[in-house]
Design a protein around this nucleic acid. Structure first.
Lengths: 345, 345
DNA sequence: GTGAAAGCGCTAACAC
DNA sequence: GTGTTAGCGCTTTCAC
């Protein structure tokens, strides 16, 4: 019937109608075949699939979504990509979503609430099946949008606060307290803190608050603190550590807001011939397995990054599949303290 | 007129019609206001904006896209998120897209061509404004889809091959050759190579091919090689280096497929008291600034990751803005060799 | 400067 | 098992 098998690249994108005409099957049935919906005889099914393949037909999900009111997109909103942590969370999200037919749309806020609001608006206008957003702090309009969106909202990475809907994270305040407690228990007394400037990084702030709070309970406070901006590399850790040691005398412990700068600190101390943890102990945050292999395993706390991404995606997938909101949708994970070899002496 | 300012959360998502009724302005004009298109008197404009805000209206891009045949999504397809390199490229992409109103949809292939094909099909069905895809190697059906999609396609991170449309990357073969040449020139003779298993990582393969090819030209070949699977952390570098040193005698240089495992190697050598580069030199790949701060700056080659992402996104943005395909859309970047402190002696 | 009609490419619902 | 009809929520086009 169709005499030429050579199909020139179409100038106009193909539609169901094209496949319908090429196969002699109604649009509706073609649609059914392509979506594996309803009963279709294997004879027509084969005809349709052959035609679709020959033409190189790719369905139009825009039209499909409009008609069916179903969208397989999931909005994922994170503060940054340059901090190692977020790609790991994304990885967890992606690994779960890819088995469900859902696709992540990515938005990056650079820790700015106004950007978050804007990104959220953009994303919600795609009527996604769900939203995964980092943090519990949002502008008023953002909260309003999330609340009235009528789709599952999962706030991740933080558990210190009331979620709008679902939540998966750790308590950073608690993480800070746990680490402080461990440091105090190990007998350290003069502690220096180094971390990012955190006007808008609420998780870092909460960790630090928890940390100082637990120290206070033990009748102590940090002997020195310094905050940096920009990338967190080893060299940043070295510089800050050098500064700290030169500025604040008699420190016996250094607490860093990330493993990467802690690793820099470790290298700096090692080069200075400081005995670790004999003279000075140290700890970071995040549990980056990447960094095992350093002269000493750094004390750290696992932030459950991948697991958080996975759990969040699972909640979205469940709800998108029709499951009702449930208590299981609020997951507070417990960060694990790993004393490594730089804390206990 | 509208007596209540309290707006209960709607059960049904709001439509233009709702805003139209609430403001007493036709749907068409509401649409114009919300898109900043055409001339609208500032009186009506204000009425409309007030109503939209009060109701919490979020436009429906699905319907908009179907009607206008314009979609602000860009498909981004990468092999993995767990390799540091890809988040960096993503970061470059995102940083450019966010100023253009385009949004990335993310697909991860895990280096599997069949996954790429599937992901591509999914993504193209959203009729995105463009595709950014890692690598030049694709299955037949993938190529066919890309070719007939009628949208800008930017293949990134590799320049050894013919792109379907646009291309931004470096020649990994050349990068391998350059490093080999530098190593030979520095007088090393017994070289060990350590890298990932690369049945499907074409860039790693090409780099290695270029490397051995240039060695061959100098009448040499690698004295030892080993390949690993799984995550690339410092400890992996240490283990592999230990194995290599124990297995292959008299090595005077170690070439690693990534900076992270090279860093592990550096730490292993340092611990063994090996003089670097006096006794053994080493080099990695990627130019991770994260790792500056190690006892020695590792010789490496910058893969221009962020720049590649930025350039790719710029091409998409230009073309989405109506610019025609041009010669500028094929960008071959030159990896910069950084000898650090572990190559020249 | 504003509005009315038509239709984007699909799928839900129902008829056969 | 297959086809027909209506309509998803916008934007395009054209009329005023």
């Amino acid at each position: 019937m169709t005499q030429d098998t050579h199909v020139p690249p179409p100038r106009r994108p193909l539609t169901l109608r094209d496949v319908s005409e090429a196969s002699g099957v109604s649009e509706m049935t073609v649609s059914r075949v392509l979506r594996n919906r309803g009963d279709v005889s294997s004879a027509t099914r084969d005809k349709v699939l052959a035609a679709a393949k020959r033409l190189g037909y790719v369905p139009n999900k825009i039209a499909g979504a409009l008609a069916s009111q179903r969208v397989n997109l999931v909005a994922v909103i994170i503060p940054s990509l340059s901090n190692l942590v977020f790609p790991e969370v994304m990885d967890g999200i992606v690994s779960v979503l890819e088995d469900t037919g859902l696709q992540p749309v990515l938005g990056v806020t650079h820790y700015r609430p106004d950007r978050e609001e804007q990104v959220l608006y953009e994303m919600l206008s795609w009527r996604p099946s769900g939203v995964i957003v980092a943090g519990l702090e949002h502008t008023g309009p953002s909260r309003a949008m999330l609340q009235s969106a009528g789709i599952p909202i999962v706030e991740i990475m933080d558990a210190d606060g009331e979620p709008i809907d679902a939540m998966v994270g750790i308590s950073h305040r608690r993480a800070g307290r746990m680490m402080a407690q461990a440091i105090v228990d190990a007998g350290y007394r003069r502690i220096g803190f180094m971390g990012t400037k955190m006007p808008l990084d609420h998780r870092a702030r909460k960790r630090f608050e928890g940390f100082t709070e637990a120290l206070a309970k033990a009748g102590m406070e940090v002997a020195g603190r310094s905050f940096y901006e920009g990338g967190s590399g080893l060299s940043k850790g070295r510089e800050m550590t050098a500064d700290m040691l030169n500025t604040v005398p008699d420190l016996d412990f250094l607490y860093y807001s990330s493993d990467m700068i802690a690793a820099g600190g470790l290298l700096e101390l090692a080069e200075r011939g400081v005995e670790i943890p004999g003279e000075i102990g140290l700890a970071g945050f995040n549990g980056l397995p990447l960094l095992n292999g350093l002269p000493r395993r750094i004390a750290t706390m696992d932030a459950c990054r991948r697991e958080i991404g996975e759990a969040a995606a699972q909640i979205i997938a469940r709800r998108a599949g029709g499951a009702p909101a449930s208590a299981e949708d609020r997951v507070v994970m417990t960060p694990k303290l790993d004393p490594g070899e730089t804390l206990l002496r």
